[in-house]
Each structure stands twice: as structure tokens, then as C-alpha cells.
Design a protein around this nucleic acid. Structure first.
Lengths: 234, 234
DNA sequence: ACCTGAACACCGTTCAAGT
DNA sequence: ACCTGAACACCGTTCAAGT
């Protein structure tokens, strides 16, 4: 079936489009982003990216250390607009605006949020974002150490929340598990789990307002909690 | 080489030990735990567990929905001792003691912490642990909703922290990345990243005390932060 | 230095067929 | 109902060989 004619077609294709643009780090990331958007992170594999670039997986290793590195570079690319978010209002509004944008991209790709938690991020866009937020916390009057530790806390929470809730919304599997959990909480045996049974409605309540609450709690705590002074109970 | 004699040997083996204990959910989890301890979560695969049980991977699907479910069941098994931790002292100490135990197991297997973030946990040991902590927060005088939302916040933070820092300590790869990050922070260009450069030492400082700080901040916030009342800046 | 094909050593999951 | 072998459709990474 495929002999002479095919090789002719290939030659023609070579003429009509440049066919194989040279491999570059940027080209790889762009292609990876396309696959991410079209099919999700789980399809962004070395092999699949390579096929899309009309080469073999081995060729990518010149530009990318391994699969995780590829994913980390994708995330940093997606963070470019976040690091440049236009903000206005008081510092608290501004911080929340940046956190919102950050969470938006992680919610869109929860698998990236999970990845971000196991790979120390050091991409330029991440750095830029952190720098801006540090500036805002400093302007708010946070002591140096509180600002430094606080940024970490805020971003860890944002990432973790997105990883958790994003995943739950994403997959059917997680949705099923969530239903199981919901049922387990709603129908908790008051003998075995008295507090869960008593608080069952509060445990599942709140969504947007719950997230708001947690960020208020965190931001407030970052400003007010003295470093290395242990709280005594009252 | 291997013909008659081998089949005899097999028969002999059948006699000498019961050879193949019946497949059960518990047996599967036990075997999985052994592999986890010996080789880490990445080796706890359907195929590998099946081989250890002298069967085919397909057989496991009667007891386990999929790989993630297997991992979730492993985590709940590891949480059994945590849910029964003996505690003493004031409620704050007790909560911290349970959180510590919880983090200990996640630190030992950071990959499980990552998994926990994408799978809503509803195992019996997890439930028992949550119930105890809810009781402690209630005893501390936290309003119902604060206790309910707060437990989630505390456990999410514990899990996320373990996933992040545990992984960094675990793999060579992550350690390298961490070194890269450290260098990027220490050598941050003050023109591009003024705040990172200024706070570079604080950004990398603290380890144990930093974790203490974040839990104090969270516990305090859970007790004090009113629900659905927005903070105004001062 | 960069690119490639082929190979190695794995995966999860499904399914028809057996008991 | 439970168990199995075989098959399907993939993976990441390495390495010798080419340019």
C-alpha cells in the first residue's frame, strides 16, 4: 500500500512547509502547552511532546532534564501573566488579587499544583510574583521575617488548596470519592465519631467564603504572629 | 534445563508451605505496606504487589478500585497509630501532638502526602483522627464553624508542608532543585528582585521554628478569626 | 553539540475465559 | 464471585551511533 507514492508525498511536504523547525527549549514548551490545554498534564509526556515535534523522545533531553522539569517549566510559563497582574487598592486587596490569579491557573490545571508541591519553584515568573508579594507585605508593615515566612505560607496554602479542590472537580474518580466522603460525614455514627456527627453540616459548608476566611486568617496571622514566641493558653 | 524436575519441585513446594494464602483485602494492604517500607511508594504498583502475592495484577481489582485507591488504603492503615496517639496537657499541646504524629508518617512517605492531597480521605483512621481534633478544638472554645473549617485548614497545611519538605529531603533531584533555588535567592539581582534580595536570609531561615510559627498562627487564627466578616486594613 | 532509533525495563487496566 | 493469562496501549530514560 504505502511505498513509492508516500515517499513522494513526504518530499512534497518538505517543500511546502519548513516541516521541522529546529528544536528549541521554547518550541518544546510551546508544544507542551498546547498538549496541556488540549488534553491535560497527564498527556504531556516526553514521548507525546516528541511526536508532536516530529522527533524522538530522546532528543528532548538536551533541553529538559526530565519529565518533572518539563512540567515545572510549563508552570513557570503559565505564571508569566500572573507575575504581571495589574492590581489596585490597598495592599491587602492587591495581595489577594495576585493570589487569586495564581490560584486561577492552578485550578485550571490541578495536576500542575500537585507537581508544584514537590518541586521547589525557581522559575523567573515565580520569582517575580514572589518579589511583588514580598513588597506588598513589607508595605503593610510586616516585619522582615514575617513577610519572608508569610509569603511561603500563603503560596503553600494557595497551591495546596488548588491541588485539593481542583482535583476534586476535575476527575470523575475524585468526585466519586468526594461523594463517599460527604456521605461518610453526613451519616457519621455519633457513637464512633461524635464530633463529626455534631458538626457534619459545618464540615461540608462554605466554599468561596471558606477560602476567603482562610486567607484572612493567614494574612492577619502573618502580620500579627510574633516569631519564636510561644503562645500560652489562656 | 527445566522440565521434569521443576514440576516435581513445584509439587513439593505446594506440600511444604500453604504457598498461596487466599487473596484478601488485608493481605493485599499488608504486602503493599512491606513494599512501601522496603522500596517506596513508587514501587507499590499493581503489578509489583501482584507478583509479591504470586498472582496477576488483574486479580487485585476485586479488592482495590485502582492504584490510587490502593495507595489511599495504605495511608489509612498507617494512620491507625496516629488516631490513637496518647496525649496529655492542654488542648493546644494535644492538638500539636496529633499533628506531629500525623506529619511524622507523611514525612516518612512524602509521596503519600502528595497522594492525600488529590484524594478526599474518608478512611476510618482518618475519621477517628479528625474526630479527636474536632473535640479538642471544641473544648478550646472554638465556635462550631471555626472548628470545622479549622481542622481542614490544619490538616491541609500539615499535609502540604510534608509533601513539600518531605519530597525535598527525599530525592536527589529535589535536593538539587532546592540548591538551585537557594542559589537563586541568595544571588537574586536587587534590580530585578529587590525584595527577594533584601530578605534573602529570612527567606531560607528557620525550619523547626518556622513550622512552629505556622501552626501557632493557624491555631490562633482558627480560634480568633470571625467567619464571614471581612477584615479592614488599619 | 545535537539528534536519532532502538532497546530496556517497566506501567495500569480490560476482557474473555476459566473455576 | 473470584481468579487468571494475555493483550492493549502506553510510559521514562539510556546509549551507541550518526551528523
Amino acid at each position: 500500500m504505502k511505498t513509492r507514492d508516500d515517499s513522494l508525498a513526504i518530499v512534497r511536504n518538505r517543500r511546502e512547509r519548513p516541516a521541522k523547525p529546529a528544536l528549541t527549549r521554547d518550541g518544546i514548551i510551546q508544544t507542551a502547552l498546547e498538549i496541556l490545554r488540549a488534553e491535560g498534564l497527564s498527556k504531556v509526556t516526553m514521548r507525546r511532546v516528541a511526536v508532536a515535534l516530529d522527533t524522538g523522545a530522546a532528543s528532548l533531553y538536551v533541553y529538559v532534564r526530565d519529565t518533572e522539569d518539563l512540567h515545572a517549566q510549563i508552570l513557570d510559563a503559565l505564571l508569566a501573566p500572573v507575575s504581571r497582574t495589574k492590581t489596585e487598592g490597598d495592599w491587602c486587596r492587591q495581595i489577594k488579587a495576585i493570589l487569586s490569579k495564581y490560584m486561577e491557573v492552578l485550578f485550571a490545571y490541578p495536576a500542575l499544583a500537585r507537581m508544584a508541591m514537590s518541586t521547589p519553584a525557581s522559575g523567573p515568573n515565580y520569582m517575580r510574583m514572589v518579589d511583588r508579594m514580598l513588597g506588598l507585605l513589607a508595605a503593610a508593615g510586616a516585619p522582615d521575617r514575617n513577610a519572608a515566612w508569610g509569603i511561603d505560607l500563603l503560596l503553600l496554602h494557595a497551591t495546596a488548596h488548588a491541588a485539593e479542590h481542583g482535583t476534586w472537580k476535575e476527575s470523575q474518580r475524585a468526585a466519586d470519592d468526594f461523594a463517599t466522603l460527604e456521605a461518610a460525614v453526613a451519616g457519621a455514627d455519633p457513637k464512633k465519631y461524635p464530633h463529626i456527627a455534631r458538626l457534619s453540616s459545618d464540615l461540608m459548608s462554605g466554599d468561596r467564603s471558606r477560602l476567603e476566611w482562610s486567607f484572612d486568617l493567614l494574612i492577619n496571622g502573618v502580620l500579627e504572629t510574633p516569631v519564636s514566641v510561644r503562645e500560652e493558653e489562656s
